[in-house]
């Protein structure tokens, strides 16, 4: 049975990618997915050895106006809910805000608007030390990040079937909205990286609420701990209240950002390797 684990945090910069990269290197055979498609940093730490496939990601078609036929009646501008139709001189143009709904094409009395294919990012499949990495780059500023995440997760599942891999590990995006939801649907377990800070706690509460909507069990790695006892206590209480289980604690330690800046992971720091091994063991135990 194939299992999927998502590493999430709510708050950005909590340490999702650092923990995911260490786990991906430790686990025997894993397909890693970078679900943060507009700030994908997992490849920097996993250092893929060989690019196997690169493809354009097409999601929504976008509108294109044949200005030679356009009578500038303005119906398209009126119907557009995204403010994406702009008047330019005596004709109309489609701006980047187009979400591809095709309402303009439907209402145009001249039938001079057509929907055309539009690439909104690139998908990559590469080979790592002990498995595969699937990641993507959304075109800067583009829509459809949630769909791109869903698409690379589908690629990862197909690959897992084909290669007989049993574990998919997803490095999730920050936040709790569309990209986070797209990274979470259908996973078996969530590993939450929780930064010891007021924002870390606040965002954990939102994330935990989301996880309970989806009825997803979660383990917690506390990160940057040991600075403030009261915040630490509030966090441990919140984890207990939300049914989480603490699987590891990583202190606030300058040697960690220094190692990460050299593109090393926790596994390269002898004092933290056992923590990651412990987290990995608990995760696999919960998956059965």
């Amino acid at each position: 049975m194939m299992k999927q684990i998502a590493v999430m945090s709510g708050k950005g910069g909590a340490g999702k990618t650092s923990v995911t990269a260490a786990l991906a290197k430790l686990l025997p055979a894993v397909i890693a997915v970078d679900g943060d498609v507009n700030a994908s940093n997992l490849p920097i730490l996993l250092k893929p050895q060989q690019m196997l496939r690169e493809s354009d990601f097409f999601s929504m078609d976008i509108a294109q106006i044949d200005t030679s036929q356009c009578t500038a009646c303005g119906e398209c501008e009126k119907i557009c809910a995204f403010g994406a139709i702009e008047k330019e001189g005596d004709t109309y143009n489609v701006a980047d805000d187009c979400e591809g709904c095709a309402a303009c094409a439907w209402v145009c009395p001249q039938k001079c608007i057509k929907m055309v294919e539009h690439s909104c990012g690139k998908k990559y499949l590469s080979l790592t030390e002990n498995g595969y990495l699937v990641h993507a780059d959304l075109n800067p500023g583009a829509d459809n990040s949630g769909k791109l995440i869903a698409s690379i997760r589908e690629d990862a599942r197909k690959l897992a079937k084909e290669k007989n891999y049993r574990l998919i590990l997803i490095d999730g995006p920050p936040g709790t909205s569309c990209q986070a939801i797209s990274s979470l649907t259908g996973v078996d377990l969530v590993l939450v990286v929780l930064e010891e800070s007021l924002s870390g706690l606040s965002d954990y509460r939102r994330l935990a609420t989301l996880l309970s909507h989806f009825r997803l069990p979660h383990l917690v790695v506390l990160n940057k701990v040991g600075i403030d006892e009261q915040v630490a206590k509030n966090i441990e209480d919140a984890v207990a209240e939300n049914g989480g289980e603490i699987a590891g604690r990583i202190p606030f330690d300058y040697s960690i950002p220094q190692a990460l800046s050299r593109c090393e992971t926790f596994l390269d720091l002898p004092e933290y390797r056992p923590t990651i091994e412990g987290v990995s063991g608990q995760m696999l135990g919960m998956l059965g």
């Binding site: 700030a39 940093n41 920097i44 800067p140």
Partner: peptide, 21 residues
Amino acid sequence: VEPTPFGIHDMLQTLTILRDM
């Protein structure tokens, strides 16, 4: 910008957006 390989990577995409806008 967090001046790490990660922060710099993500910043470059932000700069593209700002240039376009």
